[in-house]
Design a protein around this nucleic acid. Structure first.
Lengths: 331, 331
DNA sequence: CTGAAAGCGCTTACAG
DNA sequence: CTGAAAGCGCTTACAG
């Protein structure tokens, strides 16, 4: 592997000049530049990222941290979309993504490594629960980072998030407008902010339409299909006429339970979800839901992080992406 | 973020001493060591990985490269198990895994980055197709690496692999012993070595039992469920009495097609798979298959890589993990 | 426009 | 057992 110094010798210029060429620094005669580029190509020179970072430059690598175990990573349908969009967006800017796998037990060590590795230009953290140690650590460091999912308390943090509350609000309003009066909800994992926001939207819709909020109709489904099934069994007993599941995955479970109980959807009990996961269009009946633009979440996060890295942005930026109603047959 | 130099000053020793303490170098008085450790802890010192690597030391980070698009990564049931086992094995040795996401278009740039980043102690590459550019690049570098999945031509490469050929051979023998005479096979993606090995095992079993190899009964299912369905429809028309699907996922498709055609499994047409994926035990009838120890594949790979990094191993090591027959009801 | 030089934060022989 | 010093491969002011 040739070094920059060797390239300099081969091209008959100084290291500084080679460095400038490599980094597209505008200073430099075109003639010299062309010659150096030629040598670089012939020698198949690749600058050492480690040395580059130590010297004060960019690595072109950003870290993606999804503080969630492997099983969950693979079972949640959002992550593939997110990974793909982050990855594509990075590639367009000639940046590379590294995904950090974190087992809960070792989290602190991994956090230290992410921050101190000194190799990352920036970090994107996804899948926030309310208290996420890595966020605190990142805040104290001076590594640029953006969150996917808003932070509940710290307003100085850059993030992109879906407008979960408004999405939930809109779809519950839709249920109310179609004549439903006793609407239950199956909530997501309770320590996740998205869950809390979606529940908030549900409550807001009820309140604005003078419907009572009945705690017994608010059940925790933990974002799992099984949770959807169990909560729905319970809600059927409580005689609801509609169910808002805080994810399509839970709605899928709900649908199974409704079918097993012989309930007509949406006539007897309407069912709506949130996310617009691929499965939503293939259920029977197809699921009315609210579309979350997960791909936008990823690409916006990269865009924002890139601005931070290049110092284009100073004051914290917070990007909220609206959700869109997807009318189908289930509610 | 304090540097090693600052720690040295605080502890009243030289940088060398701090470095030795940090790296568990046995040289050093216990008293001095304890004092330095104390300072390190109080200052929350974390050595810079980039500097560490540049200086000639270890980063404690290994790269995991799965040269496959995100959609496939998430659809193939093997990968979660693999990721989990690699991740756990690394954590046990205080190493961290970085997963490199590679979109096909940008592969060369990413390959360069993996190798030249100079931050990785070693690399594990999984999911090999016959020609994998990263393997060639890695061979030319002096970065330690191990393959998960054997390499078809280069014998100087360290790898761990399942004994795919033997596994396929055994399960096809089982089919033959139970009286089946016209056995079709649905093969995996043709440019993958595992596919080729499994096909080879199928052929070997037929040959050794004086059964004819009929090219018409060898169909490419591309490791997809859909492929399993289509190939099975075809094989039914060709009147086979047994099917060996080269993955459980394809076997699942095959089972669907068999059911739709009203075939009794295994009486009319027996069906066997390979992998022993979770789904294998829940189909109706449960799938007879051959168990692939994916978790072992991951942990052995880490173990081997760790040896390479620590120079314990010189001559190339190739670890073959046997597959075990899982008798169930489908064949 | 280009080069000499200092510096990034470590590790590791080499002396003592 | 410990320290002074060189070196890893870059970047970036600073001169010219």
């Amino acid at each position: 592997v040739p070094t920059l110094e060797e390239i300099a010798k081969l091209a008959g210029v100084s290291r500084s000049t080679v460095s400038r060429v490599v980094n597209d620094n505008p200073r430099g005669k075109d003639y010299t530049r062309a010659r150096v580029l030629d040598v670089i190509q012939k020698a198949n020179f690749q600058p050492s990222t480690a040395a580059r970072r130590l010297g004060g430059g960019r690595s072109g690598i950003i870290g993606l941290v999804i503080p969630v175990g492997v099983p969950k990573l693979f079972s949640d349908p959002c992550f593939p979309v997110l990974l793909q969009s982050v990855s594509s967006a990075c590639n367009k800017q000639s940046m590379t993504v590294m995904l950090w796998l974190a087992e809960p037990d070792y989290e602190q060590r991994i956090i230290n490594q992410i921050i101190n590795t000194d190799i990352l230009d920036g970090v994107i953290v996804s899948s926030m629960s309310v208290t996420e140690p890595i966020v605190e650590a990142l805040s104290k460091s001076n590594l640029p980072f953006v969150l996917i999912g808003r932070h509940p308390t710290n307003n100085n943090i850059n993030f992109v998030d879906s407008d979960n509350q408004n999405g939930a609000y809109n779809i519950v309003c839709h249920l109310i407008k179609s004549g439903k009066k006793k609407i239950g909800t199956i909530t997501g994992t309770s320590n996740m902010i998205a869950s809390q926001d979606r529940l908030e939207g549900y409550k807001q819709a009820l309140i604005e339409h003078d419907l009572e909020i009945i705690p017994d109709l608010i059940l925790d489904g933990d974002f799992s299909e099984e949770g959807g099934i169990e909560c729905t069994k319970d809600l059927i007993l409580k005689d609801v006429d509609a169910i808002f599941a805080a994810s399509d995955f839970m709605a899928l479970g709900a649908l199974k339970a409704l079918k097993e109980a012989g309930k007509q959807v949406p006539q007897e009990i309407a069912l709506v979800g949130i996310d617009d996961a691929p499965l939503a269009s293939t259920t029977d009946p197809p699921l009315t839901t609210v579309k979350q633009a997960t791909d936008l979440l990823g690409s916006k996060a990269v865009e924002l992080l890139s601005e931070l890295i290049n110092n284009k942005s100073t004051s914290p930026k917070q990007i909220i992406i609206p959700l869109e109603l997807q009318m189908r047959k289930s509610g």
